[in-house]
């Protein structure tokens, strides 16, 4: 049997190989998308209700005092920011040609997404556990 290799001689010589990530990015985009499907409808209706003239901060807090609501909020924040970071990464990779700028933007975007997510979770925790 002759040895069959998919890799080119140049590819072998450079030796970078794959990044061992495979379909991780693509797959997690789908997983977070599926998680967000039921969360989004619930969320939009609540946001509209809470911005109404009759609703004040007490109504918001009462909503987050319910442990199930608070847990769903945290789940939503994690799934949304994860999904958003994956999507923004693809957009940056598509339109930013310069490799340094591309890498830098991705790192800054990811840190911003992490910051937003943590800010949201801390705020939900504070409102839920007593503000």
């Amino acid at each position: 049997m002759p040895e069959t290799r998919m890799r080119t001689p140049l590819g072998r010589a450079i030796g970078l190989g794959s990044a061992k990530e495979g379909v991780q990015h693509w797959w997690m985009q789908r997983v977070t998308a599926v998680a967000l499907v039921p969360l989004v409808v619930w969320f939009v209706i609540w946001v509209i209700i809470l911005t109404g003239s009759g609703a004040d901060r007490a109504a918001f807090i009462a909503w987050l005092r319910d442990p199930v609501s608070a847990a769903v909020w945290v789940l939503l924040l994690i799934a949304a920011f994860y999904h958003g970071a994956l999507g923004l990464q693809v957009v940056i990779e598509d339109y930013v040609g310069n490799e340094g700028a591309r890498l830098g933007l991705i790192v800054v975007m990811r840190l911003m997404a992490l910051l937003g997510c943590i800010l949201g979770i801390v705020a939900v925790a504070k409102l839920s556990l007593g503000a």
Binding site: R57, F60, G120
Partner: peptide
């Protein structure tokens, strides 16, 4: 839409954090 929603999360987090800070910020 994805890009607009990513920008919209800033408003969402502002809303949440304002509620956590206190009644004045939330108002």
């Amino acid at each position: 839409a994805g890009l607009a929603l990513a920008a919209g999360t800033i408003l969402l987090i502002w809303w949440l954090v304002a509620a956590a800070i206190g009644p004045g910020a939330y108002a």
